[in-house]
């Protein structure tokens, strides 16, 4: 009940897009980019997503679309091939920027490995509180972006998005970590911060609760009763986002 095109959009914007947050929040990630010239990697998937990852001064930013002036360009002939790169079964072949292959090997791949370490953590690593919080934060951003991609691309997700009215849905862990899912004409976009005027909100009380939810150890309905998830505003928006959220696990499992 999943499709490779939706998965490609999730892998592009939700998974690789989380490199932005990784570089911002993790010193080890920034160290991998230290003293490096600015590099941009254009990723273009036939019949699928296209984006450019730009690395500069230790930070990363993702821009929609494959920029013509990107330093390195990696095209993919299908969504399946691109998804294969993400799960490690397909080796990417750049068509531009071969002289920057060193960046790919020495910076980009270690960065994605670091991201994987947080996204698919060893249970032992989670015993370290700092690691736990970093991992949970990055998962939060990944999930928030994945919601928009599923709402825009997955057949059942689109059904849910068709029932969401225009406006901003604020998702947050406590008061510190926030993302806004903006709906306009049933298309969703995730902005990785609180935009200030939500029409509805869903707040996870703390990191531990958020983690337990992400890991499927607790159920959102039960948490609402216990008061560890707070919702408010236009509840039909939250209701439909939750239906999409149910599908996130199918794709990110």
């Amino acid at each position: 009940m999943t499709d490779s095109k939706t998965l490609a959009y999730i892998n592009m914007y939700a998974v690789l897009g989380t490199l932005e947050n990784l570089c911002e929040l993790d010193e080890n990630a920034r160290a991998l980019l230290k003293n490096k010239k600015p590099v941009s990697i254009g990723l273009e998937v036939k019949d699928g997503p296209a984006a450019t990852l730009m690395f500069k001064n230790g930070y990363c930013r993702m821009e929609d679309g494959c920029r013509s002036d990107c330093t390195i360009k990696i095209p993919f002939s299908s969504c399946e091939k691109f998804n294969g790169m993400i799960d490690g079964t397909v080796t990417p072949v750049p068509t531009k920027g071969l002289m920057h292959i060193g960046f790919l090997l020495k910076s980009f791949i270690p960065l994605t490995d670091l991201l994987s370490k947080y996204m698919r953590p060893d249970p032992k690593d989670l015993e370290d509180r700092a690691f736990f919080e970093m991992s949970t934060t990055l998962m939060f951003y990944t999930i928030a972006v994945a919601i928009a991609q599923i709402g825009n691309n997955d057949a059942i997700g689109k059904f849910s998005a068709d029932h969401i009215v225009d406006g901003d849905i604020l998702m947050s862990i406590g008061d510190k970590i926030s993302a806004t899912i903006r709906c306009k004409n049933h298309r969703l976009i995730t902005i990785k911060k609180d935009m200030g005027t939500p029409r509805s909100l869903m707040k996870f009380c703390d990191m531990d609760l958020a983690r337990a939810l992400f890991d499927g150890k607790v159920n959102a309905v039960a948490c609402i009763g216990e008061g560890t998830i707070i919702m408010g505003g236009m509840i039909s928006m939250i209701d439909n986002v939750n239906r999409i959220l149910d599908r996130v696990a199918l794709y990110l499992a």
């Binding site: 959102a220 309905v221 609402i224 009763g225 216990e226 707070i230």
Partner: peptide, 9 residues
């Protein structure tokens, strides 16, 4: 409380 929309619970 969830379906009943108890806000806040």
């Amino acid at each position: 409380p969830a379906e009943g929309n108890f806000m806040p619970v």
